[in-house]
């Protein structure tokens, strides 16, 4: 094998040392630091972007919380306003109702009074007529001239009974 010929050793070692040294110096002083820089720059960029994103996320969450709170407050205000209005209307309606029903009751009472008065008057008239009619009938039928007072007692008792049933 040509690899074990000692004559090829020295030139290869010589050039290996020179060329490996060259590429080492190049990588150590130029290439590697450059790659490191690029990677670090990227890392920094990602970190700062991420920080920004996190900051914005916090802001967004804050906004959201504020929005929720405002919404809640508005809803509460609206609810209380509705309840207030409802109560006011209810109270108004009640007073109006009471007033109206009072008026109606008074009118009804008045009408009733009038009816009673008219009825009593009618009864009194009928009684007077009834007494006269009774006296005439008795006189015609039996020829007896009964005293008006006797007849009126009998008629009155009947009418009192009638009045009682009417009122009762």
């Amino acid at each position: 094998m040509p690899q074990f010929d000692p004559a090829v050793f020295l030139p290869q070692i010589f050039w290996l040392v020179i060329l490996f040294g060259l590429i080492y110096l190049f990588i150590a002083h130029s290439a590697a630091p450059k790659i490191t820089r690029v990677l670090e720059r990227r890392q920094d960029r990602i970190a700062s972007d991420l920080e920004e994103a996190e900051r914005m996320q916090t802001t967004a969450e804050q906004v959201r919380t504020d929005y929720d709170l405002a919404m809640k407050a508005a809803r509460a205000t609206a609810a209380s306003m509705v309840a207030q209005k409802r109560n006011a209307i209810k109270a108004e309606m009640e007073t109006e109702y009471n007033q109206l029903s009072g008026e109606l009751a008074a009118e009804a009472a008045l009408a009733e009074q009038k009816i009673i008065v008219a009825r009593d008057k009618a009864l009194d008239d009928i009684r007077a007529v009834s007494v006269d009619v009774c006296q005439d009938i008795i006189q015609t039928v039996s020829g007896l001239d009964l005293d008006e007072k006797i007849i009126s007692v009998s008629v009155n008792s009947r009418f009192d009974m009638m009045k009682e049933t009417a009122n009762g």
Binding site: I46, L50, A53, E54, Q57, A60, E61, R64
Partner: peptide, 12 residues
């Protein structure tokens, strides 16, 4: 919003 939070967490 939750999605954003999850994504930020993952990236971190």
């Amino acid at each position: 919003l939750e999605d954003l939070s999850a994504r930020v967490k993952k990236a971190r």
